[in-house]
Design a protein around this nucleic acid. Structure first.
Lengths: 242, 242
DNA sequence: ACAAAAGTGTTAGAAGTACACCCATGT
DNA sequence: ACATGGGTGTACTTCTAACACTTTTGT
């Protein structure tokens, strides 16, 4: 929001972020949830939109996405990747190009942050979390953008470890499997899942167990030296968000 | 180049394209080649750069890429996809965001076009084709961009049919295999390759054969109703380049 | 006849899938 | 003790890689 609007030729550059997390309501299957911002001004006043803002001249693209994310959720992403640059001529009045990022948040931190803010009486203005499968009317082409982000997440979950972005540093295999199941929308065989993940040699078993119900489950943590997804030559680019 | 330079806040938006084709020199293995433009002005005057220009207000992103491509090569791409939006603060003086596309060209049309132009005495100004594995000094962060495009091509060749973008509508399985081999940089087993491609059911055998050396090879053509690569919800977006 | 590419068959191993079964804990 | 999720074993199918072999042309 730091950027002054308008430019000589009328092309403006915005950065928006599709912020995804996993949410557990009671005992049912977890769902993908994302925060949206209610628009207070025309066009599309009253509709919900992706968090974002105008790009600041001195700010990198990923940094802008991370900043927006922090302003909206108070959190830092556990995964952040550029999604796509949307630039159809008619997508918004006055020619706006949106470079859109997508991010994953740890479910535990989201819950914690929401609880903290609620107890502190801080109501974040116009921000509300929605279930990804039950979205309100979105402004501009944002419905399409969210759809694409969800597709990318499902896709990427098939050949990378992005699902870990929903989890805290230590988690059980059941936690991880549940994350994958939520993303992919289908049940996975616990036995085969276990073998598949430890065939990748990216999880380190700890000596800690999660107790509480039935047989205790071993906690694992990530081999921190490996990225959650292979980005090829772009590997170093987006991690420097500042 | 239609866009007037400069804007209130100094952020300018360029569209560039990594144009890739396959080139056969004699009897050796084909190589990936791409056209570059020699810069005549500072910064980086004398260095080579990706074809591109400023985005016109009334022009879609993919359309701008296609236009640039046509101006540079006189051809229409057989495949065109957005690569990435590069926007590091220090990548160029004065904050330039480049939305970069990558495209594949049919090798036969490239050869034909080059021959036509050469025989007509039309020398395309400052445009030269380079071997992707032997590039000159590139301006800005363009070396990195080309590297990323090559990575994406190799990657995508593994799970889609993009390699067909190098070939004319009718081709032999050896042609197709050679395209894959050039992209992946390794030999493929002809027998297994054959089975794998016809397991996808996307190639239609014709009754024509290519003769000339040894046993004639059957010509195949593409099942035209399927895209070369699955782009999910973005499928329709980029095909409309105008 | 022979070289060389087109095209078919066969087999061994890897990877993915289904599911039976044992283990350890809270209630 | 028993229900339930944690964890192991095993058989089956599917995919992949390697390579021997037959077919069809040009020379």
């Amino acid at each position: 929001m730091t950027r002054s609007e308008g430019s000589e030729d009328g092309i403006r550059l915005a950065v928006s972020t599709v912020i995804l997390t996993m949410r557990r309501d009671g005992s049912a299957a977890p769902r993908i949830a994302l925060p949206l911002v209610r628009r207070t001004r025309a066009p599309h006043a009253g509709d919900w939109a992706l968090p974002g803002g105008w790009l600041d001249v001195r700010e990198g693209l990923a940094a802008a996405a991370a900043r927006t994310l922090a302003e909206t959720t108070g959190l830092a992403p556990s995964y952040l990747e550029q999604l796509y640059a949307f630039g159809a001529v008619d997508r918004a009045p006055g020619r706006v190009i949106s470079v859109v990022y997508w991010a994953l948040l740890r479910e535990d931190l989201v819950d914690q942050q929401l609880a903290e803010r609620r107890s502190a009486g801080v109501e974040i203005e116009n921000v509300e979390w929605f279930d990804a499968s039950d979205l309100p009317t979105l402004a501009f082409d944002h419905a399409r953008i969210v759809e694409y982000a969800a597709w990318r997440l499902r896709n990427k979950a098939g050949y990378s470890r992005v699902a870990q972005g929903f989890l805290p540093p230590e988690f059980t295999l059941a936690d991880l499997r549940e994350a994958y199941e939520t993303i992919l929308g289908r049940k996975l065989d616990p036995a085969n899942f276990r073998r598949q993940v430890d065939a990748t040699r990216t999880l380190i078993p700890t000596n800690a167990f999660r107790t509480g119900s039935h047989r205790p489950a071993r906690l694992y943590r990530d081999a921190t030296d490996v990225e959650l997804a292979d980005r090829g030559p772009l590997a170093s680019d987006e991690t420097r968000t500042s």
